[in-house]
C-alpha cells in the first residue's frame, strides 16, 4: 500500500523514494537495525558524529550500505552554532555528503532547539554549500527565517525529542506547511503511527522518526506501521478531507422514508 501510493520526499531537487526518514539511535543491535531499516522502506537514515571507538567500528555504515540507504549526519548534542558548523563539516568529510540534519539544542533537559544559534549555524552552512535540514521549534516565524537563509527543508518538532507525546501544536504545524516553500518534515516527539498520519494530513512532506520506532517493543513491526501511516496520511491530504462542522449532515437520503402507520402513535416519528 505504502509503495503503491508512493509518497516521495523531494529535497534540494533530489527525490527520496520514501517520505519517512529514520533515526538510527536507540536500537538494540545492528541486526535489528538492518531489519528495521528494510521494514520502514526509508531512503534516508540519520547518524550522529562521535569519537572513534578503537574497540569496534564500521558495522553501522556497513549495515546502512547493505540496505542501500543514504546516510544523513546530524549535529546532535551541539549547543552552539560553532560546534554545529564544525560537526557538520566533519560529517561531510567522513561520509561524503553535503546534507546535514542541523541540530543546535538549548539545554539537556528539554533538548529543544536554540533558535538563535540554529539560525546562525544554518546561515553559515548554507554559505558553505551544505544542504541544510534544520531541526526546529514548531514556530512558523522561525521556519520562515530558516527558509529565507536557504535551508532545503524545515523540520519542526511535534514534541520534545524522545517524548512520544505526538504533535502538541497541530495549528502551528499547519501554519508552517501552509506558507513554506520548502518541504516540511515533522521531526521529534512522535509516539505512534497515527501521529505520522496526522503530520502528513497537516501538509508535511515527510516525517522523521527515531525513538518511536527504535525503542518500541517490536521495531520492525513499528517501522512498517509508520510507513503505512505516512502513506495513509498523505493519501488523506491529497484526497481533500471534508470540512469539520458542528452539526450532523445525514449521509443517507432524508426524503422518501417509509411511513409505518400500523405502529402505535408513540412509536412513529414520521406523521402521515
Amino acid at each position: 500500500m505504502a509503495d503503491e501510493l508512493g509518497p516521495v520526499l523531494e529535497v534540494a531537487g533530489e527525490k527520496l523514494s520514501s517520505a519517512l526518514i529514520l533515526g538510527s539511535g536507540g536500537i538494540a543491535s545492528m541486526e535489528l537495525l538492518e531489519e528495521t531499516v528494510r521494514a520502514s522502506g526509508t531512503d534516508l537514515v540519520t547518524v550522529a558524529m562521535r569519537r572513534v571507538d578503537p574497540g569496534g567500528r564500521g558495522s553501522l555504515l556497513d549495515v546502512l550500505g547493505r540496505c542501500g540507504v543514504r546516510v544523513l549526519p546530524n549535529t546532535a548534542g551541539c549547543f552552539t552554532a560553532g560546534e554545529a558548523v564544525l560537526t557538520a563539516r566533519l560529517g561531510r568529510e567522513a561520509l561524503g555528503t553535503s546534507w546535514v540534519k542541523l541540530e543546535v539544542i538549548g539545554d539537556e533537559i528539554s533538548l529543544l532547539p536554540d533558535p538563535v544559534e540554529l539560525l546562525a549555524a544554518a546561515e553559515q552552512l548554507v554559505e558553505e554549500g551544505f544542504v541544510v535540514l534544520p531541526y526546529s521549534n514548531d514556530d512558523p516565524i522561525l521556519a520562515r527565517r530558516l527558509e529565507q537563509v536557504g535551508c532545503a527543508a524545515v523540520m519542526p518538532l511535534g514534541a520534545p525529542i524522545g517524548s512520544g507525546l505526538g504533535i502538541r501544536n497541530p495549528h502551528n504545524i499547519a501554519m508552517i506547511t501552509e506558507s513554506a516553500g520548502v518541504p516540511v518534515v515533522l521531526d521529534a516527539g512522535l509516539g505512534a503511527p497515527s501521529d505520522a498520519a496526522l503530520a502528513m494530513e497537516l501538509g508535511c512532506s515527510g516525517v522523521m522518526v527515531a525513538s518511536a520506532i527504535t525503542r518500541s517493543q517490536d521495531p520492525v513491526l513499528m517501522a512498517r506501521g509508520f510507513a503505512l501511516a505516512v502513506a495513509a496520511g498523505e493519501a488523506g491530504r491529497r484526497a481533500g478531507r471534508i470540512p469539520p462542522r458542528y452539526r450532523a449532515l445525514a449521509s443517507s437520503p432524508t426524503k422518501d422514508m417509509a411511513v409505518f402507520s400500523s405502529l402505535p402513535a408513540d412509536d412513529r416519528r414520521h406523521l402521515d
Binding site: 547518524v47 562521535r50 569519537r51 553501522l60 567522513a94
Partner: peptide, 10 residues
Amino acid sequence: IEVLTAAQGG
C-alpha cells in the same frame, strides 16, 4: 585532535 565517525543517533 578529534577523530570522529558515524554512530547511531538522531
